[in-house]
Design a protein around this nucleic acid. Sequence first.
DNA 1: TCTGGGGTCCTAGGACCC
DNA 2: TCTGGGGTCCTAGGACCC
Length: 420
Amino acid sequence: MYALADCNNFFASCERVFRPELNGKPVVVLSNNDGCAVARSNEAKALGIKMGDPYFKIRDIVERNHVAVFSSNFSLYGDMSRRVQEVLHLFAPSVEPYSIDEAFLDLNGMDVDFDAYAKQISRTCRRLTAIPVSVGIAPTKTLAKIASKLCKQYPKLEGGCYLNRPQDLEKVLKIFPVEDVWGIGRRSVKKLETLGIKTAWDYTQLPETAVRKLFMLPGFRTWNELKGIPCIEFEDLIEPKQTICVSRSFAHELKTLPELAEQVANFAEMAVSKLRKQGSLALEMAVFAMTNRFKEDAPQTTGGVYVTLPEATAEHKTLILASADACRKLFRPGFAYKKAGVVITKLVQARDYTPSLFQDAEASDRDARLSGAIDRIHASFGPGAILFGAQGDGIIRMAREHQSPHYTTLWEDIPGVVVK
DNA sequence: TCTGGGGTCCTAGGACCC
DNA sequence: TCTGGGGTCCTAGGACCC
């Protein structure tokens, strides 16, 4: 038996924790550069604001309805996420964090009233973190997802729902749209439409051979999961990432190589930080850049350059220099670059790597000490406290007109209470 | 004027091996 | 004229997730 705990409208809910007067009011949270709506409270959804809507297109709705707008504040969301996960650990020996706002709980072997347990988990999260959480419990992860969605739809479930009895499953799956099933994406929905498949139940009634042929292994797993046969394993061990990517859109387009190269160097530095945190080394890196695809009349280009590193490394200097090199190869004059990024495409765990016999040990020791010093400076004074010359003045500041304070992660932003 | 960022898994097909 | 059978590894691209 698995539980899925899913935070409702997570980023919007985080903002409300410290602005309780916004409860019951429409709230949206924007992506980087205040570009798109990436989280909406139920009230904002009811106004017709969709996930991913560009801000400039919904500005009218926002102003007419006094929607509270926030720029993204990931240090707040990350910290709130950690708190919710901590609460979840009170209810199950193993918890699998699935995304910033979701986690699976392994309830196998537990002998409890699962419906009451689901509601209790939700209630406790709410009380200890002030975040509303929907908890679905079912014999497979896919069904647990469906159960948690039901909680959001039906307030009378009090945030928790147990889905296992065959007659309940049939009733629920017969009204559950197939496009809302975890693992069924847009492309599959198109195929399903031509077959006349509308609900999750319809999907389970397809013959096995058809499912395997049309939707391959992933679709076959989903098909089984919907029928209560677990095919997606519980993974509570946090594996090191297989790729690391840092990319950004720029508030203003960049037209010169030095400007672009500086930003790419900054992305490389951020990627190295992530790399070092998980104890990996990079074997290969890619740099990419592209123009603004929405400007149809402007000349368009998009490209990437791979760099194979002579030695696996997690040193700032090597990777930043390599990124600048790649950027020079990539850059084409006459284009206005809107977005760029650095991807570390091949990683190896440091403990699994044997350096080349012919490596310059002295130089690599020097670089390692430099990187260690940079890490310590960042830890004490914050990221960006020290930069390589290649990074220019650091990353271009993003548009963030509506950012809330870092309530839980910065001393000067901690909320105060006035006692009269 | 203004349009996000970061991941995983699977498959087909090519290159190569004996 | 006739031209086998079985395997691995790698990569690009597709599909999906939040």
